[in-house]
């Protein structure tokens, strides 16, 4: 099997991909020049003890669309592999919403971004007890533009781990990663950001930032930004991380406006996650995502 976008020699991910594609592969092909105001929605209802899906994206050149992949259901174990090639000049809003009721989610994305293509890749994740995601984006042609966004809500005893790898392998490529995780109960989140700028990628411009909101004394959030820059003539390459509890001054401000302590807390968590959600897509998608996260916030004991 050959899948573009994946670094050579990645045995673990490659093995998973082979296993996944052997059992179930779906191809979503977007014709060149296709354009739609309405989002393409893929609903994945996870059932049973274990299941796996390989979704292959073939997004034609100069096409424009919003793709929403929703993972719901009560399966015990689900493996989602998404591979894809984004054609030259395409504009893609690619949002993956992972809200399984329980169980384990293993997700691997391997996306190759074509010349002058613009990709906004959003992840909304909560629900499953364990999530391990390995998201890789490669810009191998000049002019690629990538915005990676995460809104993670981890509660109870969840363990949510995302590794995001962004490869600048061509000149004049641009990427920004903003990852917001709200972590409560005795849950744990891990966010690893690997930024690789290859020799010859002149004019590359890359930055990543992780924000972690700690909602309880037992919650744990780790952010591990990593940089590997082999090109001197870059616009910038930076990373940062910030951890902290809910700001008591913000709580007092909301309480002074009549919010009770519980409303103030859930409003501030939603606002924190909304900072990244609001950039993920259209207004209708945003409203829907906010509604989803608000219902998640109402149920668990954060």
């Amino acid at each position: 099997m050959s899948v573009s976008g994946l670094p050579e020699g990645d045995v673990v991910t490659g093995s998973f991909m082979q296993a996944a594609s052997a059992s179930s592969q779906w191809i979503l092909r977007i014709e060149p020049g296709f354009s739609s105001q309405d989002p393409v929605i893929l609903d994945i209802d996870v059932k049973g003890s274990s299941s796996i899906l390989h979704l292959s994206l073939d997004v034609g050149r100069l096409s424009e669309l919003e793709l929403i992949t929703r993972v719901r259901g009560s399966g015990k174990w689900f493996g989602l592999l998404r591979t894809g090639e984004i054609g030259a000049g395409a504009v893609l809003n690619d949002v993956v919403v992972c809200l399984q009721d329980e169980g384990t989610l293993l997700r691997v994305d391997s996306i190759a971004i074509g010349r002058d293509a613009q990709v906004r890749a959003g992840t909304v994740s909560s629900g499953s007890e364990r999530t391990k995601a390995d998201l890789r984006y490669r810009m191998g042609e000049p002019g690629g533009n990538l915005r990676v966004l995460g809104s993670i809500l981890s509660v109870d005893s969840m363990h949510i781990d995302h590794h995001v790898e962004i490869h600048h392998d061509a000149p004049e490529t641009f990427s920004r990663l903003t990852w917001n995780s709200a972590c409560g109960g005795d849950s744990r989140t891990v966010g690893t950001g690997m930024l690789r700028v290859a020799d010859g990628s002149r004019g590359a411009d890359a930055a990543q930032i992780f924000h972690n909101l700690l909602l309880s004394a037992d919650a744990e959030a780790d952010s591990i930004p990593e940089l590997e820059v082999r090109e001197h003539e870059v616009v910038g390459c930076g990373h940062g991380t910030a951890n902290g509890p809910i700001d008591e001054d913000q709580v007092f401000y909301l309480e002074s406006r009549g919010f009770d302590p519980s409303e103030a807390k859930s409003t501030l968590i939603a606002a924190f996650l909304n900072s990244t959600l609001s950039e993920m897509g259209s207004d209708s998608l945003h409203d829907w995502l906010v509604g989803l996260l608000n219902s998640e916030l109402r149920t668990p004991d954060a």
Partner: peptide, 24 residues
């Protein structure tokens, strides 16, 4: 009363330095 109860009773404070709440 708690601050939010005071607000509901009709007390309002215009803050010297109002808090920013990104995302709200």
């Amino acid at each position: 009363l708690e601050p939010w109860e005071r607000a509901r009773e009709g007390v309002f404070l215009s803050f010297q330095y109002p808090q920013a709440v990104p995302g709200l």
